[in-house]
Amino acid sequence: MGEIPGARAELDRLGGALRAQLVELISELTPGTGLDLLFLDEPTVVDWHEPLKYRYSTDFRGARAAEVGAAEVARLGAGRLAAAGWTVSQAPEADGSGTVVTGTRDGMSIEIRVAEHVPNVLFSGRTPAMALFTPSFEWPAPVRTPENLTPGYVLCYECDGLGRCPECGGRGWLPDEAAGRVKCPECLGRRVCPICRDAGELAISQLQPFQRGYYPELGKRPE
C-alpha cells in the first residue's frame, strides 16, 4: 500500500490540536488532575473498509472539586469550547443521569460528561477518521508451476501451486460489506494454503488415498 501524500501530517496536526484542547479543559474543569494517562500516541483503525480509516481518540477521567457542581462544570466547559471556536451543544444523558456537552470543529469532537451524584468528569476526544494509505493488494505469483516442480512432487490440488491461501491470496481476510473485513474461512487467518502450507506442491509418496483421487494421472497406489 502507498501513503496518501499529506494525510498522516494532517491527521497528526488534528491530533495535536485535539490534545491541546483537552489539556485546557481538564486543567480548568478538574484542576489537580494528572495528565499522565492522556494518551493520543498513535492513530488506530476505526473503519476496516478499504481504504482503512484511522483516527486519534482518547477517553480520560478527572474529578471536579467538591464545591463545584456538575451544572457549573458543564457551563464552564461549554464556554471554554465556544470561546475556542468549537460548535457547542448540550443535552441530558439518555438515562437522565447527567449532562453531555459536545463540541465539534474541523471534523473533531469532544464530549464532557458530568453528573451531580458522582464527582467524576469524563472527557472524550476524537479526530475525524481519515484514509492514510491507498489499497494496493496484488494476487501473488505461484511458488510452484509445472516447470519448477520438485521431482517426485505434484502441484497442490488445493491451491494449484500458489502456496498462499487460494481463497484470500495470502491476506488472511476477505472484504465484508458490513464489517469491512472478516477472517478468511479457508486459512483462518494463517495466510498460507491449509493443505501444502506454502509449499505449493505435495510429495507423491506421502499422498493419502483420497488425495491421489485429485491426480488421475497417477493411477492407483501399487499394492
Rank of each mutant, 00 (worst) to 15 (best):
L38Q: 06
A83G: 02
D41H: 11
G77Y: 07
G62K: 15
S57Y: 00
V73L: 11
R64F: 03
Q90C: 00
A74Q: 04
P92H: 04
A78L: 05
D59R: 13
G62R: 13
R61L: 09
R75S: 06
G96L: 12
A82L: 05
L37Q: 08
A71V: 08
V45Y: 04
L76C: 09
D41Q: 11
V68S: 01
A82N: 07
G98K: 14
R61K: 15
S89M: 06
G85R: 05
R55E: 03
D47W: 04
V88R: 01
A91K: 15
L37P: 00
E50R: 15
L37G: 02
A84W: 08
G62L: 11
D59T: 14
A66I: 07
G79Q: 04
G62Q: 10
A82Y: 01
A63N: 09
E67P: 03
A71T: 12
G79Y: 03
L52G: 05
K53T: 01
D47M: 00
R75Q: 11
T44A: 10
A74F: 04
P43V: 12
A71K: 15
P92F: 02
W86Q: 00
R64M: 01
E67Q: 12
V88W: 02
Y54P: 00
P92I: 06
V46A: 05
S57E: 03
V88S: 03
A83H: 00
A83R: 06
Q90M: 07
A84L: 06
V73P: 09
F60T: 12
G96P: 12
E93I: 04
A65L: 15
K53C: 03
A84G: 02
T58V: 13
A70T: 09
K53I: 05
W48S: 07
A74N: 06
L38F: 05
G62H: 08
V88T: 01
V68N: 04
R61V: 14
P51G: 07
S89I: 06
Q90L: 04
G85V: 00
A74Y: 02
Y54E: 01
V46F: 10
G77M: 11
V73T: 12
E93A: 11
V46W: 08
P51C: 07
A84M: 09
E50A: 15
R55N: 05
